[in-house]
C-alpha cells in the first residue's frame, strides 16, 4: 500500500512540471522611474553620518607674527646719541 501511494505522488508531480513549461511568461520592467528624494521619509535612527563629508584637518598656524611696535626705545637712544 505504501509503495502505491508513493507512486501516485510521483505521477502527480511529473504532471505538474509538464503543465508549467507549457505556459510563456513575459516579465516587463519599467522604462523610466523617478524618485522624489525630498519627500522620501526615512524611519529609524542614524548610525553613521548621512551626508558625504570631509573631516577637517587641523590647520597649521604660522609662528611668525606680524610686525608690531612695542616701544620706541631705539629712537630714544638715537636721540641721546645725537645730542651736541
Amino acid at each position: 500500500m505504501k509503495y502505491i501511494v508513493t507512486l501516485i505522488c510521483l505521477i502527480f508531480t511529473v504532471k505538474c512540471f509538464a503543465q508549467a513549461t507549457d505556459k510563456d511568461v513575459i516579465i516587463k520592467y519599467k522604462e523610466y522611474e523617478s524618485f522624489d528624494l525630498g519627500n522620501l521619509e526615512i524611519k529609524g535612527s542614524v548610525l553613521a553620518p548621512g551626508d558625504l563629508s570631509v573631516r577637517e584637518r587641523e590647520r597649521k598656524i604660522f609662528a611668525a607674527g606680524l610686525y608690531d611696535r612695542a616701544n620706541f626705545v631705539p629712537e630714544l637712544e638715537e636721540d641721546i646719541r645725537n645730542l651736541r
Binding site: E56, R59, F62, A64, G65, L66, Y67
Partner: peptide
C-alpha cells in the same frame, strides 16, 4: 628688514584667503 615684514604680511593674507575658501 621691512622687506621680510612685508613678506610676512603677504603670507598672512594668503593664509586668510585660503581659510575663507576652506
Amino acid at each position: 628688514a621691512m622687506s621680510y615684514e612685508m613678506f610676512n604680511i603677504k603670507l598672512e593674507i594668503m593664509s586668510n584667503k585660503r581659510e575663507l575658501v576652506y
